[in-house]
């Protein structure tokens, strides 16, 4: 079974925010909730790199592990989703998530946040695929429509790849070979220190 993953090619991402507004548009995400955002490193100096980040649909997801009500679930494609009917808006997932993916519609006093919202890999939620309830709560279910995430599909430079981890790894490898250099794919492994990041994040100095 395919394992859905995102990879953002920092050599291509130009911080155009296309992915961000594509997501807003497709899912009618309200102001203040950013399922996807673009982070620019070394802004304004040589070596500047931008990376678009959303939920990475982690294999051993911290959000899932800390949720007091276990409202997360993982689909067969490896997409980490959650059930807003169960979510209590405690915010723990956002503390745990290395990427700051979980978002909350309000930042009210007394810690009242509303139900958590995050990138669904455009796969909706627990409601019936394509139902109105699903759309209202989670946005569209593109995977069920046989489509890939809109953010990746609309990415202006095809920096953002989303889909089966093996396939995107292939695509990426091809680019790297063509570039002839070991450009680091920025993805899931970076946060957890796996070799996926090109090189391990700790200890080794290269």
């Amino acid at each position: 079974m395919a394992r859905m993953k995102f990879v953002c090619d920092a050599e291509r991402c130009i911080e155009c925010n296309g992915c961000v507004t594509a997501c807003k548009n497709e899912h009618e995400v309200p102001w203040g909730v950013n399922r996807r955002r673009v982070v620019t490193l070394n802004d304004g100096v040589a070596g500047e790199k931008s990376i678009s980040v959303a939920c990475m649909h982690c294999s051993d997801a911290p959000c899932m592990a800390v949720c007091p009500v276990n409202c997360f679930y993982r689909t067969d494609e490896g997409v980490v989703l959650h059930d807003k009917d169960i979510c209590i808006g405690c915010g723990y997932c956002s503390y745990a998530c290395p990427f700051g993916a979980p978002q909350f519609p309000s930042t009210g006093t007394f810690g009242v946040r509303g139900k958590m919202d995050k990138c669904t890999f455009c796969a909706g939620g627990p409601e019936a695929n394509g139902s109105e309830e699903e759309f209202e709560k989670y946005g569209r279910n593109r995977l069920a429509e046989g489509k890939l995430p809109i953010c990746a599909e609309m990415c202006s430079t095809k920096a953002l790849l989303g889909g089966d981890g093996d396939v995107i790894a292939d695509i990426f490898r091809q680019r790297v070979v063509q570039r002839g250099k070991g450009a680091e794919v920025w993805g899931w492994g970076t946060a957890y220190g796996s070799k996926q990041a090109g090189q391990p994040p700790q200890g080794a100095k290269s």
Binding site: A2, E145, D164
Partner: peptide, 15 residues
Amino acid sequence: LFLRRSGLGIGVGLA
């Protein structure tokens, strides 16, 4: 190709 490889297949589901 992507969908085929990812096991979703085109035209499957709500396509």
